[in-house]
Amino acid sequence: MITDAAAMVLLGAASITDIKSRKIPNGLTVSSTGLGLLYYVVTQGISGLWFSGAGMLLGFLLLFLLYLFKVVGAGDVKLFAALGAWAGAALVWSIFVYSILIGGMIGLFLLLYHFRSYGTRFAQVILVTLGLRNLVVLKEHLKRPATFPFMIAVFPAALVAYFIG
């Protein structure tokens, strides 16, 4: 189906740019959102607009909440709006849930990896947090959070949502 192909091309392009530069271009997200809405209006009329618009709105709102807490970037928010415009609300919800689960597993892996690599520093942060003996260590640790491009979780999540359910 053309909508599935469009969503996968969107996700593939966003994954490449996010992994390479940690940015998802506005040209990609905004044009994809507009094309998704236009496609559904042309092919299904007002019901297509509702389907695509609801998906766009849900995708935007879900990621905007994460953006407010600085969990994801603005490009991810716009990407989920575009993805919702092509995939609809039900599928964008599934992709979101799987993305959070996969992202959590990646985060746990990174935490365990960094704990192994920086165990002493991690222990200092815990002790500082509990005992408040040296706030400088805590401030230094908080300046360098371990992050990863969210598309590393979103692309496999979309594959799971499309092919498994």
Rank of each mutant, 00 (worst) to 15 (best):
L10H: 06
G104T: 02
R121Y: 09
L91D: 15
W50Y: 11
V97H: 10
I24K: 00
F115N: 15
K70D: 15
T43G: 03
I100T: 02
I95W: 07
I46C: 11
L66I: 07
L91Q: 13
T147Y: 09
E140P: 00
I106H: 02
L10Y: 09
I2Q: 12
L68Q: 08
F69K: 12
I16P: 09
M1Y: 08
V77T: 13
A82R: 05
Y98G: 00
V30H: 12
M56R: 07
G107P: 02
L28R: 04
S99K: 00
K23S: 13
Y113T: 08
A13P: 06
G27I: 10
G107E: 03
M105T: 10
A157Y: 06
S21A: 11
F96D: 02
I16A: 12
L138G: 01
L10C: 03
A54N: 11
S21I: 10
L37N: 05
I24H: 04
H141C: 06
M105K: 07
G34E: 09
L142H: 05
L127N: 15
D4E: 11
L83G: 06
A158L: 07
A13M: 13
V128R: 05
V71M: 15
L138H: 01
L135E: 12
L79M: 05
A5N: 05
K139A: 13
A81C: 06
P25C: 08
A123W: 03
F69V: 15
T17I: 03
F51T: 03
S32I: 09
V154A: 15
L35G: 07
T29M: 06
Y162I: 15
H141M: 03
R133E: 07
W50T: 08
R22D: 15
A90P: 06
I152N: 10
P25G: 06
